[in-house]
């Protein structure tokens, strides 16, 4: 298994990758959760939903995609109804996307808890943009921001 830690070499072709439809399914559920959190604002519902989504991102980013609740749902309920995937994919790129989602969601959650509703909504809106692009366009967040972040950092 490839981990999310930056590697010296370009990601190897992992023989046991993941079904690429799993992260996309997860992105669609993430879009729904973020839309609810965005529209509800910092009331009990909005705060509970963004807290849940923050937990989902944290599990995906820090434990692994196999522990991410939407991934579990996909494997247990959706995957058995579909045919096998055409090919498997490296889990590192979607795991990186979970980390980015986590960073925005955590800002959203803290803002909601502090009553800074608009700040929270902007952060959730940015997470929503990424999740929507992933669900609708199979967008690769790691391609866009990882190298730019590395260029800035060193």
């Amino acid at each position: 298994m490839t981990t999310a830690t930056p590697q010296t070499h370009v990601s190897p072709t992992t023989p046991s990758g993941i079904d690429p439809r799993g992260p996309r399914f997860g992105a669609a559920l993430t879009v729904i959760a973020l839309v609810i959190a965005l529209l509800a604002g910092s009331n009990v519902l909005g705060t509970a939903v963004i807290a849940w989504q923050t937990l989902v991102f944290a599990l995906g980013a820090f434990v692994g995609l196999s522990a991410q609740p939407y991934g579990v749902l996909y494997r247990k309920v959706v995957r058995p109804r579909l045919g096998p995937p055409a090919e498997l994919e490296d889990p590192a790129p979607p795991r990186f996307a979970q980390l980015v989602g986590f960073l925005f969601a955590v800002v959203g959650l803290i803002s909601y808890l502090l009553g800074a509703t608009v700040v929270g909504q902007v952060a959730i809106g940015l997470a929503l943009a990424a999740a929507f692009l992933n669900a609708a366009f199979n967008f690769c967040l790691g391609c866009e921001i990882y190298l730019v972040a590395r260029r800035l950092r060193s």
């Binding site: 839309v35 965005l38 604002g41």
Partner: peptide
Amino acid sequence: MSTGLGILVVVLIAATAFGLYRRF
């Protein structure tokens, strides 16, 4: 609610435009 709705609309339009641009 209305702020959230405004952000939602802007995000969906901008992300769709960006996604289509990248696709092409």
